[in-house]
Computed example of a mutant assay.
Amino acid sequence: MTYVVTEACIKCKHTDCVDVCPTDAFREGPNFLVIDPEECIDCTLCVAECPVDAIYADDDVPDDQRQFIALNEELAKEWKPIVEVKPAPEDAGMWATVKDKLKFLER
C-alpha cells in the first residue's frame, strides 16, 4: 500500500505534509503535490497534516478519485522532490472546497 494525493490538493498545495515525511516521498509541481509510490513507506504521518484531506491510502481513494493513483505515479517520475515547507498559495482557501479541479492541474 502507498499513499496518494488527490484532487483537493490542486491549487491549494499546502506543504505541511512534506515536513513530516520521513522518506522525502513528496514531489512538487506548479500547483499540486504527488507522492512517489516507490519512496512512500506507508507511515500515515502525512494524512493528518493535510488541511484539505487530500491524502488517502491507495486502497481508500474514493471511486471518483481513482485516476489520481496513476497520476501520482506518473508525475512522481517527472517532478522534483520537495523537502521543506513552503507557504500555500494566497488563494488556497478559496480553492479548498472546489470540486472537479483536475482541469486546473499544471504539469
Rank of each mutant, 00 (worst) to 15 (best):
P89A: 05
C46T: 01
L33Y: 06
D19C: 11
P22L: 06
R66K: 15
N72S: 08
G29D: 10
K80L: 12
E84F: 13
C43D: 13
I82P: 02
A25F: 02
A57F: 08
E28A: 10
P30F: 14
A76W: 09
W95V: 00
H14G: 14
E38V: 06
C9H: 08
A57H: 11
C17I: 00
P87F: 03
I10L: 10
E78W: 06
T2D: 12
C43W: 09
K103R: 14
D64A: 10
R27P: 09
I69G: 07
E84M: 13
I35K: 00
D63Q: 12
G29S: 09
I35C: 01
P51H: 09
W95M: 08
D59R: 12
F26V: 02
E28D: 04
V61C: 04
E78C: 10
K86L: 12
K80A: 13
D24R: 12
E74F: 11
F32T: 06
A25R: 02
V18M: 05
D100E: 15
D16C: 03
I41F: 06
P87C: 01
Q65W: 07
G93E: 13
V34C: 11
L75V: 07
D58C: 12
L33R: 02
D42F: 06
A54S: 09
V20M: 09
P37Y: 08
E38T: 02
V18K: 02
A76D: 07
D42V: 03
I55D: 02
I69V: 14
V34Q: 07
V98E: 15
P81A: 05
E49R: 05
K11I: 05
K86I: 13
E106M: 10
F32D: 03
W79S: 03
I69M: 09
D16Q: 11
A92Q: 04
V20A: 11
P51Y: 09
Q67C: 12
I55E: 00
E84T: 15
H14E: 15
P51C: 07
D58V: 11
K13P: 04
R107L: 11
W95D: 05
N31G: 01
D100F: 12
W79C: 01
V83L: 03
C46N: 05
K80P: 12
R66P: 00
D63P: 03
D42M: 08
E78N: 11
D63A: 14
L102W: 10
P22E: 06
E7Q: 13
E78K: 14
Y56F: 13
E49W: 05
V47G: 04
I10H: 11
D59C: 00
D100V: 00
C12M: 04
K13T: 15
D58I: 10
E73G: 11
E39P: 02
E49F: 03
E106H: 05
R27I: 05
I69L: 09
D24M: 10
A70V: 01
L45K: 11
T15G: 04
V34M: 00
F26L: 04
C40K: 03
T97F: 12
Y56R: 00
A70Y: 05
I41E: 11
E106W: 00
D64N: 15
A92S: 15
V85P: 03
K80T: 11
L105P: 03
C50Y: 08
W79T: 01
D24C: 12
